[in-house]
């Protein structure tokens, strides 16, 4: 429904619309704090990059946005995470439905050991779609949107594990697009890929942001600079600085941000 409302907004309104808003978010693993009091607004149809050293909480933050953290034993989340104004941590939230709206691409390409077609059709099928013609359309569209169609259209029935790493990752993106999420979370999506595959994915991200809201965790500062509109810098579980990417990368306000992005950290 949020989608319908969104479509009625004009382009100008769309540009400043807040898709997800995080308010006073703290996360603990057992007694270890992982995030403390984070406030951050993710703009619709923006690419938001999360950067910071290992263990700074950026991946934890990403995983709170679609409640993938629920899978971890002993995790405690306080604060609010609003998706189109609705708190996704409110008791009674349908987590399965949430994850359909807020999908995730992982660090290592993780296609299922099935055919390319079945990988992409997986999402629509689990959501109850049986019609073969409709499935074919969705699979083709998702693969096209993920810039993979031309490379795999002749071997949709062969195993997805036979693809190269970069193709596998684009397949994972296609698999996600097939369920038509609203927000795409990416956890270091290119860290296991070669530079050319990395650039292809980055190009893809630029294409996708017209339709989706994207949040990406990356260790590659240049990548954050290249693909994102806004950048958030995390350090020791705190959000140190959040702002337009060009500002963060030319004149960050916080000394710690500067030290980190210029590589004078630790």
């Amino acid at each position: 429904m949020g989608r319908l409302v969104a479509e009625r907004l004009t382009a100008a309104e769309e540009a400043i619309r807040i898709k997800m808003e995080v308010q006073g978010l703290s996360v603990h693993y057992g007694n270890t704090p992982a995030l403390s009091n984070v406030n951050l607004a993710v703009k619709a149809n923006h690419v938001t990059a999360l950067i910071g050293p290992s263990g700074c909480g950026k991946t934890t933050f990403l995983r709170t946005l679609n409640r993938m953290n629920d899978l971890i034993e002993g995790v405690r989340v306080t604060g609010r995470v609003l998706l189109d104004g609705e708190d996704i941590y409110r008791p009674g939230t349908d987590v399965v439905a949430l994850r359909k709206r807020v999908g995730m691409v992982f660090q290592r390409p993780n296609p299922f050991p099935m055919s390319i077609y079945d990988n992409v059709a997986f999402g629509p099928r689990i959501h109850g779609l049986r019609d073969r013609r409709r499935l074919n359309e969705i699979v083709e569209k998702a693969l096209r949107d993920a810039a993979l169609w031309d490379e795999v259209k002749d071997r949709l029935r062969s195993s997805a594990l036979g693809l190269s790493g970069g193709q596998q990752q684009r397949l994972c993106i296609a698999r996600l697009l097939a369920v038509e999420p609203e927000v795409v979370l990416m956890d270091e999506p290119t860290s296991a890929l070669d530079p050319i595959s990395m650039l292809k994915i980055e190009e893809l991200i630029q294409d996708l942001k017209a339709t989706y809201t994207i949040v990406i965790v990356t260790h590659n500062m240049q990548q954050a600079a290249r693909v994102s509109d806004s950048t958030a810098f995390f350090l020791s579980g705190e959000l140190v600085e959040y702002g337009p990417t060009d500002v963060i990368f030319t004149r960050p306000r916080d000394r710690r941000t500067e030290d980190y992005i210029t590589g004078r950290f630790g």
Partner: peptide, 9 residues
Amino acid sequence: QQPIARDLR
């Protein structure tokens, strides 16, 4: 070195 921020400046 792909300088950014102050380094770039």
